[in-house]
């Protein structure tokens, strides 16, 4: 019998690939955003709004993760940017090797790369993809009790967007409670209250993206 001290990260291979993605993005001065939420929270609509707002100034591409169909990538591509769909065929999250493969199909002459993760508030939080920032979306019809139920996800968020604010009053969503719970769990997260579908409240978030693009451009 032999005892071997290992002290290795279980997801070391994923992290190694993610770090090489990060190096590639940094080298090319591409700011990258990993967008995560439960299904139906409004990730694709949010990304459409980001693209509409920033396309006149910046070169953008998107990677869309879903279990099946090309629907999300088609919606984003319809706005005239490059969009690659990853079908995970059953896997509930994107991992770094999937993103690395998708990046082979994208021209790196870019300012912004948006990754739309698989709709899921649990699994994507454990897999680092090499992106600069994590944006987590929560929508009002999901209920105002979600933050403490999914501590890992809200803990990895750099930005939390509370979406579908236009219908908050009809679904008894206590926005103050949600904001307080986010601040308790992750005081560094920046919170934006938006309605992606109505294009309301997005300008501050768009400015935050712009600021990050410019920072990386001049590095």
């Amino acid at each position: 019998m032999k005892r071997i001290v290992v002290e290795k990260k279980i997801l070391e291979k994923n992290d190694d690939i993610a770090n090489s993605i990060r190096n590639l993005l940094d080298k090319n001065h591409i700011f990258s955003l990993n967008v995560m939420s439960s299904p139906g929270a409004g990730k694709t609509t949010l990304i459409e709004r980001i693209v509409e707002a920033l396309k006149p100034e910046y070169k953008i591409a998107a990677i869309d993760g879903d279990l099946d169909t090309q629907r999300d990538a088609q919606r984003i591509a319809a706005l005239g940017i490059e969009a690659v769909q990853i079908n995970t065929s059953g896997t509930c999250h994107l991992d770094s090797s999937m993103v690395q493969k998708a990046l082979n199909d994208i021209s790196l002459d870019l300012d912004l790369l948006i990754i739309e993760n698989v709709g899921n508030l649990v699994c994507p939080a454990s897999f680092y993809l090499g992106t600069h920032k994590n944006a987590v979306l929560i929508s009002t019809p999901e209920g105002d009790d979600k933050v403490k139920k999914y501590p890992t996800m809200f803990n990895v968020a750099d930005v939390v967007l509370i979406n579908k604010m236009d219908i908050a009053q009809f679904v008894n969503f206590n926005v103050e409670k949600v904001e307080n719970e986010i601040k308790e769990l992750n005081p560094n997260a920046i919170i934006f209250k938006i309605s992606a579908i109505k294009n309301e409240g997005l300008s501050e978030f768009i400015n935050w993206i712009k600021k990050n693009i410019e920072l990386l451009k001049h590095q």
């Binding site: 005892r3 071997i4 279980i10």
Partner: peptide, 20 residues
């Protein structure tokens, strides 16, 4: 009233292994 920095709780590690 300042943010705390996490020092433990995110671990996903293999510490040691026994084999033959």
């Amino acid at each position: 009233q300042m943010p705390l920095a996490i020092i433990n709780g995110k671990e996903l590690e293999i510490v040691d292994v026994e084999g033959q």
